[in-house]
Structure formats: structure tokens, C-alpha cells
Computed example of a mutant assay.
Amino acid sequence: MTIKEIAEQTGFSLSTVSLVLNNKPGVREETRNRIARLLVENGYTLRTESQGPEQKGELTLLRYKAVGHKRERNEDFFVGLLNGAEPKARQLGYSLGLVQVDDGDLVQVLERLEAQDHVAGVLFLGTEFDTRRHPLLEGFSKPLVCLDNRFENLPVNTVCADSLEGIHQALSHLKALGHREVGYLRGSVPIGGLADRQAGFSRAVEDLGLSLCPEHVVEVDLLFDAATQQMLAHLDRKPSLPTAFFADNDIIAAGCQRALQQRGYRVPEDVALVGFDDGSMSTVLTPALTTMRSDKPRLGEMAVERLVDMAENGRRDVVKSFLGVTLVKRGTT
């Protein structure tokens, strides 16, 4: 069983299971015993103070959360990464620790991880990390691999879904269906992969010979309800509409789909929609959302493989890895 499956079976959070696995405080004794029993039954070795590091050491998954960002966090993406990273780490002889950090704590947490001998390296989930703050990471000497933020033109090892190629696939699909005017539902905060998507959208429109009217670029927040209200306000201004929209992610697409339907537009007959991420929300919409799917567990595996290679073989060359994405055709196109 994976950590996620153990969390689901016991009814506790992933972070609680991780606390028990790593012998950290903050868990009631009854809860700790219940989770620990399942962990041991499934081949996990619980760290104790006298025992020292488990196996070869620990890889720490550091989940960075920016303060003040108005966005719904993609838990499907995080859980998918974890489902790949945790078994791969265990297979290679490491435990996987989970740490959540925000702006104010990042430097202190990195210093603490630097000082812990059993920590072999860090997987940095940097979706919300502003790469202009890259100097905060420069002093960290242990191996570090960043996920979901490619740190363009910076010497950071990264593993990301290929957003540029994915957008080209999405717009090619719309073009094949006869759409020539494609609009863009753009996230208001260009974090992580969204920055790539915004650059990739303009490039794909030009490459494919599509038409983009400035009025058809609608900027919305990365929150379902906010995106709905902002799209409703846009529609109430009676703008011209393209025959199809591409959205930066599924949350934006879902909010805007609801707004279109509330104003009487039929999806996809009047306006088609394509999202990005293939999160759980994409399948509960009516009609279900056409979107781009990344293999989240494989991204987690790739990051662990790279991190272990750096830790065990001393590699310091910078590698930026991209995993292709797949078009999932559903009812909105």
C-alpha cells in the first residue's frame, strides 16, 4: 500500500501518516498506533530516535505555498506526485518525508534540512514559487530537484509536464474541429506551469494560423467561484465570443463553463472548452471537460530518480526534464 492508500484506509491525512512514519510529534497515541501498525504491515520501517535514519536516508518533499495567492491548490496533482515519488524512493532505499513551507519559513526550513545528516536531498514542489526569489535556494548545498516550475534560464534541476507541447496539442485539436477563432481564459497569477502556458498559447496560435482577438482574452482568478463571477461579468458586457476557449487549468475552465451555461450558452455547441491538468473536477462537469493530462506519478518518479542520482553519484550538471502530456477528449469539444 502507498502512503495515500494508508491515509484513505485509516481516515487520516497524508501529513498525519507522514508524521507517524518519521516519528514526529503531534499525533495522539491511539492514532499513532493504528497508523504505525498498517505501515509496518506494508513494509515500512518506522524511524526511532535510537535507530537513526531509515535505510540510506530520507528524501524530503518540500511543498512551497506562497502567502496571498488567490488560487485553489491542485490536490490531485500533489497526490499524484506523491503516489509516484513515495514508492520510487522506497524502491531505491529511501524514506520520503513531507514538509509544508511558506514564504516566511523557507530559509529556516532549508537551513534545518541542510543540518540534518539523514536528509539526502530535497524535492521542491515550486508551483507557487516566484523564480525571481531564486537566491533563497542558492545557499542550499544538498541535491535539489524542483517540480512544476522550470526555473527558466536558472541553474536548477527541474521536472515538469511539457506545457508548451500540451497547448499545441490542445489548439491543434480545436483547429481540427473547425475552430479558427480561439479565446484564452488566462490565470491572473502566472505561477509555475501557468507561465509556460501563457507563453505557449501565443506561440501555438501563431504556429497554427489561428485568430486571436484581444477581446477574447479573459483574465480570471485561480478560484472556481471567482472565475465564475468574473466570467459572468465579462459576458454581461455583451462581448463577441470565439467559438472555443483554452483555459490555463481545469479550475478556470470549470468556473467559466458554469458562467457560460448560466448565461444560456451551450457547451460545446456555442462555445467549446479545453482545460489543462485532468483533475477530478474535469469529470464531474456536464458535459465533462476535454483537457490535457500529465502522468503525475511518473513526474514524481522522475524527480526521485534524478535526486537519487545526484545524491549517490555526486552529479551537479543541471538537467531540465519534461514529460509529454496527453489530450483527453470529452464532451466540451
Rank of each mutant, 00 (worst) to 15 (best):
N149Y: 02
G126N: 02
S202D: 15
P143C: 11
S13Y: 12
T243Y: 03
H173G: 01
A115R: 14
D102H: 12
T291E: 10
D130S: 06
T10F: 02
K88C: 06
M302E: 12
H134I: 02
D196P: 06
P135M: 05
L210Q: 09
Y94W: 07
L110R: 03
F224L: 15
F77I: 13
V304C: 06
R237T: 12
L137A: 06
R90W: 09
V318G: 10
P214V: 12
Q116V: 04
F12N: 00
E41I: 02
E41M: 08
G93E: 07
L222A: 14
P268G: 05
E128K: 03
L289Q: 04
C146M: 09
K65S: 15
S18P: 11
A7I: 02
K88P: 01
M1S: 10
T228E: 13
R28M: 15
V79E: 11
P214D: 13
A7Q: 05
A36D: 01
L147G: 02
R132W: 01
L222D: 14
L46F: 09
L273C: 08
T45F: 10
R47Q: 13
L232S: 13
I251H: 00
M231C: 11
A176V: 02
L299T: 03
G52K: 13
D196L: 14
M1H: 10
V325N: 02
R237L: 11
D103L: 07
E269Y: 07
G97I: 01
Q100A: 10
V319K: 10
P297N: 09
R298K: 14
I3C: 03
V156W: 00
S15I: 13
V145R: 00
Y44P: 07
L98N: 01
L210H: 09
L81P: 04
V40N: 00
I191S: 12
P239A: 07
L62V: 12
P143W: 06
E215T: 08
G43F: 15
A303G: 10
R186E: 12
H168D: 08
E219H: 07
Q169F: 08
E29W: 05
D277E: 15
D117W: 04
S95R: 08
D278E: 14
G192Q: 04
I35Y: 00
L235M: 03
I252F: 03
L208N: 09
R34N: 06
V40F: 00
E111C: 07
L19I: 08
Q198M: 14
L299N: 02
E75M: 15
F12H: 05
K4G: 02
T286R: 11
H173E: 09
P239H: 06
D102F: 05
P239D: 07
G275S: 09
E8P: 04
H69Q: 14
F12V: 00
R258S: 09
V20F: 01
R306Y: 05
D236R: 05
V182P: 00
G80Y: 01
A244K: 00
G183F: 03
G68S: 14
L223N: 14
R32S: 05
G324P: 12
L171H: 00
G187K: 04
G209M: 11
F78K: 06
